[in-house]
Nucleic acid binder design. Structure first.
Lengths: 224, 224
DNA sequence: AACGTAAATATTGGATAACATATCCATATG
DNA sequence: CATATGGATATGTTATCCAATATTTACGTT
């Protein structure tokens, strides 16, 4: 037995969660071959739930499957990352503009709490969980649950790369926090125009910085 | 990550394709229980590729899995369908506005061919394939491959319901075709503003009509 | 006859063993 | 040097078995 079994999830689900979290944390880097038997042995399960988990992760976009070759951790190209950020900016600004008219003080408090927790984490330790909690709190009043779920998927896909950037550039984290606080104020003032503009900048700037950092790393790697 | 995988198809994938197409065609209606052994027997395969296929379809959102109860064909609520149409309108109009400046005559011809094939199908036989080919041709010059792939996913989720509507209301199909032809002309004229407006109407109207029809059917069913 | 409960049955989740098949890689052959 | 050939490795699939859980059936009580 591999630890506390405090859930009713199926093994497949648990294996999928484990592997996904390792991918998101960067523990399994892009390009890593995932061997069924290895994972199965490590977790003390048979190949079957592992296979089902890998299929799951495949359709979530985290691994690519090639028949008789197996699963490899997906890697997003710079272009794809930039594209995802652009899409995020488009859809999330829309969600925010829909949400602001319906925002209550309770919604804003929820966002405030998430923002504070996010800001209080140590430099260099970026919590995607808290960042998402903040953004989700802002969008939830729009009532667009399906759309928010899709956006969550985009956040997850980008997560590893953001984490990478934050580890290098701890200033971004503080800027991000400042943006969050400003956003809450603008939402409270029902200043949709400025709020949307700030959010657009917030996301776009994140994407731009990430692209720069990744290009830098790629060049450094090519030279080294 | 998102793109089509051109593997040699494994059995699991073939089973997934088969079940998915039956769901999309409405052959397996929402709420239908999918029995592993039944499908396996029907296709002459063992349960394992069927199970993997069902997991695959689960993460694509076409079935819901409950442990020890199995797979049930998912059903979208009216609200969810409306939301997906709104999201489509938002993102697709954006894609179109990005695409128009880069459109070549070749792109327009591709759209034209798809539109003609779409218009030439018999009334009542709505081809989602051709409809998608047309829309994809319009968006492709934007170069936003990931986004287009995501939009394709939305089209697929809605597909069964659209099909239902078209079977009832064959007029919609002709209106749709007329919109397509007009869209091509506006794109050729690089009239981004009018093209985007028309596309917005085109998608929104589709969503509105679908919502009406589905509500009608629900009421009829409640009375019957 | 209606109802609640317990046993029987069916179905899924998972493990294991076995075999088929595809890929990779090193080595021998021309 | 190019190639093909064979073994090692890993995946894809089947068959069979068992455990856990749902569903249904049967039964006894009221």
């Amino acid at each position: 037995m591999v630890g506390p079994t405090l859930n009713k999830q199926t093994l497949s689900q648990q294996v999928a969660d484990m592997v996904r979290s390792r991918i998101l944390s960067g523990d399994y880097a892009g390009g890593t071959q995932l061997r069924q038997e290895h994972i199965a042995g490590e977790l003390g399960v048979s190949r079957i739930p592992v296979r089902e988990a890998l299929h799951q992760l495949h359709s979530e976009g985290f691994v690519t499957l090639v028949s008789h070759k197996g699963a490899v951790v997906s890697e997003l190209s710079l272009d794809q990352i930039v594209e995802l950020y652009e899409l995020r900016a488009r859809v999330e600004t829309w969600l925010l503009s829909l949400a602001i008219p319906h925002m209550t003080e309770k919604d804003l408090e929820r966002a405030q709490i998430a923002a504070e927790k996010f800001g209080n984490t140590e430099a260099g330790i970026y919590s995607h969980q808290l960042n998402w909690e903040f953004h989700e709190a802002l969008y939830a009043p729009s009532g667009r649950k399906v759309t928010i779920e899709i956006i969550f998927g985009l956040h997850e896909k980008i997560e590893r790369y953001t984490k990478l950037m934050m580890a290098i550039d701890s200033v971004r984290q503080k800027e991000s926090h400042a943006d969050h606080l400003k956003l809450i104020e603008l939402c409270r003032a029902k200043d949709t125009l400025r709020a949307v503009n700030l959010l657009d900048m917030h996301i776009s700037e994140g994407g731009k910085q990430l692209a720069l950092k990744l290009e830098e790393m790629k060049r450094a790697q090519a030279l080294g």
